[in-house]
Structures are given as structure tokens and as C-alpha cells.
Simulated assay, not measured.
Amino acid sequence: MSRVLVTGAASGLGAALVARFVADGHQVLGTDVSEDGPGGTAYRKLDVRSPEDWDAAVAWCEETWGGLDILVNNAGIATGGRIEVETLDEWDRVVDINLMGVVRGCRAFVPLFKRQRAGYIVNTASAAGLVHPPMMSSYNTVKAGVVALSETLSHELGPYGVNVSVVCPSFFRTNLADSIRGADRAMGATARQLIEKSPRTADDIAAAVVAGINKKQHLIIPDRPTRAAYWTKRLARPLYDRQMRRIAARAHEKAERASGAARAAGAETRSPDGR
């Protein structure tokens, strides 16, 4: 039986991971930004942007459990947009949560893992950390950073008996779309559609993730679309590039149609004298 901490545990993949770990007989501490979490396991408020919250979580694990076996850095938000439309404030927000939130979690718990000479870090990235579709520059960038961080730590912490995995799923049905907000509304609508129409559920992804953890896989790719895109990029780069350009062309056409419709709607609301 392992002692497990999961961030972003109140909903989506985090909640599904908590349920899977509990079903497998592990002790689980779920954390999230809300004061109250789902029942059935220990829960505490943890904002991944707060070093103080991370320090308190480490103290709780040491005082309550005498340590920790598995840290799952799962909390994150959805974002994206064309480079000239998405604002720098939006960039700052997603970097602070999706990338630096993982960095803070690793920094907080690595000293404990080193003292234990054992531990496991599981970082949730995305298919966007491995393949980089257009109109998603901020999300691609932070998720690629999580992949790079995870690979770095797998080498750095290996001598201390600490394993590191990085999880890279494609779109799956979850409430992640509710976190989408920003200036590029056309791209946000596209991302929401891809999330909500996916045939995969959070439970499907959680089952594959826990199976990968049990096998100590460093790179956990829990679905077929991500595996196909990943290997196409590695082994058939010209085909991959053509696919990305087709995606960009379709997104450009959709954005242009949306802009045209907005301009037309604005013209219809004007009075005859142009006001």
C-alpha cells in the first residue's frame, strides 16, 4: 500500500486518479484550490502557485503518514490561442499553474524523497508536450516544459531511488474546458469541442496511468491518438508536418469565418447614420 498525494483532485483526471488509487487500496491525499473536496479520502486545500501550501502539504505527509511514496502533479488549466491574440497575462497564468505548479511540487517533495531514498513523481503533461499543433503555443510550451522537466529529474533523482513518470494524454472528456478563458474565443471554442466530443473518459485515462505507474514507465502515453501522432512525428516527419499545416489551414478558415460573422453582426446593430 502506497501513500499518494494528487493535485487537482477535485474533478477531472485528478478525481479519477484518486478513485483508482483508493480502489487499489492505497492511502490518498487529494488536494485542490477549493476549500472542500470530494469525500471518500483525505483532502486539503493546496494552490499549486503557493509555496506555503506546498510546505504545509509536505508537513502534513510527514506528520500524518511519516512520508510519501507517490506525488502526482496533476493540477492544470486549458488555454491556447493564436500568438498575436492570446495576451501576455494569459501566458503568465498558464506558465504559473501548468509549469511552475509542477516545479514547485517537485521542489517541495524532492528533499523528503532523497531522505527516504525512495519516492515516485508523476507529472501530468499532455499530448501537446510531445506534438505541437498550431494555435496552441502557450499550452504546447508549458506541457513540453513538463516533459523536459520530467526527463531531467528521472536522471537527476535516479541515484536516490526516485522514479519519475510523465503522462501525455490526448483530449478526453472532462470539465477541463471550463478553465478555458482568454482573448482568442474562436480557438477556445475549438478546444472545448475537442474535449467534449472525445470518446475517452477521465476514468479510461486514469486506468492507463496507474497501469503505467505500476510498470514504472517513464513516458506514459495512455491513448492511441497520442501514440500515433508521437510516432508519426518521430518516424515520418514530412507526413506529420503536412498534417499540422492542414490543421492550421482549417483553423485559419474557421477563425476568418468567425471574424466575418462578428463584423457583420456589428454592422447590423449600427443605426442608419453609422452610430
Rank of each mutant, 00 (worst) to 15 (best):
residue 79 T to H: 11
residue 67 G to V: 02
residue 40 G to T: 00
residue 97 I to Y: 01
residue 55 D to H: 11
residue 58 V to S: 09
residue 24 D to P: 02
residue 59 A to M: 07
residue 62 E to Y: 03
residue 90 E to V: 01
residue 46 L to V: 04
residue 94 V to K: 09
residue 37 G to Y: 01
residue 53 D to K: 08
residue 30 G to M: 04
residue 48 V to N: 08
residue 19 A to N: 15
residue 26 H to I: 04
residue 22 V to T: 14
residue 21 F to N: 08
residue 38 P to N: 13
residue 60 W to D: 06
residue 67 G to N: 11
residue 61 C to Q: 06
residue 83 I to D: 14
residue 21 F to W: 07
residue 82 R to W: 06
residue 62 E to Q: 13
residue 83 I to S: 14
residue 43 Y to G: 02
residue 95 V to E: 12
residue 32 D to A: 13
residue 78 A to W: 00
residue 34 S to Q: 15
residue 29 L to F: 02
residue 75 A to L: 06
residue 44 R to H: 07
residue 65 W to E: 12
residue 33 V to M: 14
residue 107 R to H: 10
residue 56 A to E: 13
residue 91 W to N: 10
residue 85 V to R: 09
residue 73 N to Y: 00
residue 72 V to D: 08
residue 40 G to M: 06
residue 40 G to D: 02
residue 28 V to S: 08
residue 83 I to H: 15
residue 38 P to F: 01
residue 91 W to G: 09
residue 23 A to P: 01
residue 65 W to H: 10
residue 29 L to H: 04
residue 89 D to N: 13
residue 103 V to S: 09
residue 104 R to V: 04
residue 21 F to K: 07
residue 59 A to D: 14
residue 53 D to G: 08
residue 82 R to N: 12
residue 65 W to A: 11
residue 57 A to I: 00
residue 100 M to T: 14
residue 34 S to R: 14
residue 56 A to P: 00
residue 101 G to V: 00
residue 87 T to V: 03
residue 59 A to Y: 04
residue 80 G to E: 05
residue 32 D to H: 10
residue 93 R to P: 05
residue 22 V to Q: 13
residue 82 R to E: 12
residue 56 A to S: 13
residue 54 W to T: 02
residue 32 D to N: 13
residue 40 G to P: 00
residue 67 G to M: 07
residue 99 L to S: 08
residue 43 Y to W: 03
residue 74 N to A: 10
residue 18 V to A: 12
residue 108 A to G: 08
residue 52 E to H: 07
residue 71 L to W: 01
residue 27 Q to L: 15
residue 54 W to I: 01
residue 25 G to E: 08
residue 90 E to H: 05
residue 89 D to P: 05
residue 42 A to V: 02
residue 46 L to R: 07
residue 45 K to F: 04
residue 106 C to H: 03
residue 22 V to D: 10
residue 27 Q to E: 14
residue 69 D to T: 06
residue 81 G to F: 00
residue 86 E to H: 09
residue 37 G to H: 05
residue 53 D to S: 09
residue 18 V to S: 11
residue 61 C to N: 07
residue 27 Q to K: 15
residue 60 W to I: 00
residue 95 V to G: 15
residue 55 D to L: 12
residue 33 V to S: 15
residue 72 V to Q: 09
residue 50 S to Y: 01
residue 23 A to E: 14
residue 22 V to K: 15
residue 42 A to F: 02
residue 102 V to A: 07
residue 75 A to S: 10
residue 71 L to V: 01
residue 22 V to A: 14
residue 34 S to W: 14
residue 105 G to S: 08
residue 59 A to L: 10
residue 88 L to K: 15
residue 78 A to G: 13
residue 43 Y to N: 03
residue 88 L to E: 14
residue 45 K to V: 07
residue 85 V to A: 12
residue 94 V to A: 15
residue 101 G to N: 09
residue 54 W to K: 06
residue 80 G to L: 00
residue 30 G to L: 03
residue 91 W to C: 09
residue 30 G to I: 02
residue 54 W to N: 05
residue 83 I to K: 13
residue 26 H to K: 11
residue 101 G to T: 04
residue 58 V to W: 02
residue 56 A to F: 03
residue 106 C to G: 08
residue 24 D to A: 13
residue 99 L to V: 03
residue 93 R to A: 12
residue 78 A to R: 04
residue 47 D to Y: 02
residue 40 G to C: 05
residue 83 I to N: 13
residue 83 I to E: 15
residue 108 A to D: 07
residue 68 L to Y: 02
residue 55 D to W: 04
